[in-house]
Design a protein around this nucleic acid. Structure first.
Lengths: 343, 343
DNA sequence: TTTAGCACTCGATGAGTAAGAGTGCTAATC
DNA sequence: GATTAGCACTCTTACTCATCGAGTGCTAAA
């Protein structure tokens, strides 16, 4: 869609003013606040065209215009200027990562808490999942026949543990053998990489110990299957209610459903590609429950491997520039913090 | 406070009708629905007395009466009849515990989920904390100098793990010695019991290995300190919004503050005595944030040791009989499920 | 002691009105 | 031809006022 310079200015004004005020924007407001050098009447003409193009709409005849979802998309793709965090905000965020963290969850929970204070959107985060990080060592603890606990230590010293089912009654000794295989052959690899490594060497020397390898593969599979059910962290629920969109209790209930159900948010994070920032506006979202919301997500890494994702969810009338800047800064800082030593 | 038979009946009617309808109750309604065999005028006289006694109050002159918090307390203590769950509800609840549970959290989360479906109150639960359960064995995994992971296996096979700081650079060998001490001497005891056992035998043979014992005590202390920060599980947030008390967004925000902050709920559970069901009505609660709510709590056990607590939070206009029945049934069933085998 | 009767109070509801915001169109202007 | 001033028109919002009805407290009779 081709818009002349002035139409773009008008659209930008409508979007930004609406984001700021949550009210329909009138031609007069634009003329007054955004100094396009033309009269309200001219702006009205442009607005009529923009409405015909489906980029803005009118709640009722005697109201100003609000952006349509298509209008927001146009804005995000072509008009929006890069947002910036204040130095103060940046330093608040970095400072929490500077603190000594006892456990992986501590880092995550601090992140959520700080970001909730910086923004009025719902903050949500998955992981970090050490099974996608480079292994330092693993340790098996046999609990009962067919049950064991697997402790995973990442290269930089973070720890996580998983309960796993063993396919058959495996002896303590076999378990120790597998442990040695992991620790001797697979240090520095992630679980998916280990699977590939095993498959590649299936005709090599390792494959002579067929049973052991099968066991290792089973274990990896069982761990990776657990992954998706794993930790989802949330924050900022109380803040998002400040948004006038949530003055209606019905909307609040929908939001709480989303929060309590968790699976939608989990899937959104799980499907986030590691190609920078993803922005989904309203009906662009796959799930009904979030089609009147917008979601900004990105993945974060540990030593180069993607181990989780981070997201902000708000009304479609979201401050995209700021949300994107925030998601970008957080995922980068978090990646750095995780890549540094755990201890 | 002494009330004659009829005043009690009237108070009971006011409380129960108000619980059911959330509306002020008029003398006429009582005469019609609760068949006291007297006219509205008589009931009005009784109501005037009850109001003077501070048990009921009038929102405005031309409205009926609602119970005061004092009135609810009187009702709970002396008038309320024991509530009952339907067989259907009971069997739904027991059935979830019959299912095979992979992890301790699974049981807890299922409990929350089911109870949220049975009630329109906020459901919250702490624990289960295996450090208060009888030990089967422990296992230490040294992670880095001054850091280790402690895996606790309870007598019936449940597993939990804690990251612990070691007071000094302890050698792998010493750690293994402590592990042996725990597993040989302290099987079947809880951590607090172990502390007492150690202190009692401080002049006995064990005390010859002074350093080892100190280390063990340090570890126990460090684990028990973590306890209070530990798992809090929540559910039913979306349901509680059905209550007309939460038609006002301000109330909802207060509630979400409570949920997001967690510390208040945590403390409420931590302070719950294991003496049956505790009911706190409105301002009887210690914390400002819940003084317009009522809370019903009880502890649950694992093999006789209290390992956690369970609670329902709702508006002061809560169905106490039902809430109490539910809390009672859940804590009993949960205790049974946890005392049975984990595998 | 109980109850019928009645005047009184107060919140809720709805109609009617006025104010105000914003538009679209027309005609004049640049 | 593009822009703008002017104006009639539409629609929402806020406010007022009257009415209705629920429920009470009081009084006097049963």
């Amino acid at each position: 869609m081709k818009l002349n310079q002035r139409k773009q200015k008008v659209l930008e004004a409508v979007v930004e003013d609406h984001i700021a005020t949550a009210e329909p924007v009138s031609s007069r407001t634009i003329a007054r606040k955004y100094k396009l050098g033309v009269s309200p009447a001219t702006i009205r003409n442009e607005m009529a065209d923009l409405e015909e193009a489906g980029l803005i709409e009118q709640p009722h005849t005697s109201a100003g215009r609000i952006p349509s979802q298509k209008g927001y998309r146009y804005y995000v793709d072509r008009l929006m200027r890069k947002g910036h965090l204040t130095d103060r905000e940046k330093s608040t965020i970095t400072s929490i990562f500077a603190q000594q963290a006892r456990e992986l969850v501590d880092i995550v929970q601090r992140t959520i808490k700080i970001v909730s204070q910086c923004t009025d959107y719902l903050v949500f985060l998955s992981g970090p999942q050490l099974e996608n990080a480079a292994l330092h060592k693993v340790r098996f603890i046999s609990l009962a026949p067919g049950k064991a606990m697997l402790v995973i230590v990442s290269e930089n010293g973070w720890v996580e543990n998983k309960l796993i089912d063993l396919p058959v009654a495996v002896s303590q000794e076999e378990l120790e053998q597998v442990e040695r295989v992991f620790n001797n052959y697979f240090r520095g690899l992630t679980f998916p990489q280990i699977t590939r490594a095993i498959l590649k060497s299936v005709y090599d020397e390792l494959s002579r110990q067929r049973l052991l390898i099968d066991l290792a593969l089973d274990i990896i599979e069982s761990v990776l299957k657990q992954e998706s059910e794993d930790a989802l962290y949330l924050g900022g629920t109380r803040n998002i209610l400040k948004q006038p969109e949530y003055r209606d209790i019905q909307q609040v209930r929908k939001l709480l459903d989303l929060i309590e159900e968790q699976s939608v948010l989990r899937t959104i994070l799980a499907e986030t590609q590691n190609i920078g920032i993803t922005v989904r506006i309203g009906r662009e979202n796959k799930f009904d429950q979030v089609q009147n919301c917008s979601v900004v997500t990105a993945t974060y890494t540990m030593g180069g491997n993607t181990v989780g994702a981070f997201g902000l969810l708000g009304p479609v009338r979201m401050n995209y520039a700021r949300a994107i800047a925030l998601v970008e800064f957080i995922t980068q800082t978090l990646s750095n913090a995780l890549t540094g030593s755990g201890f």
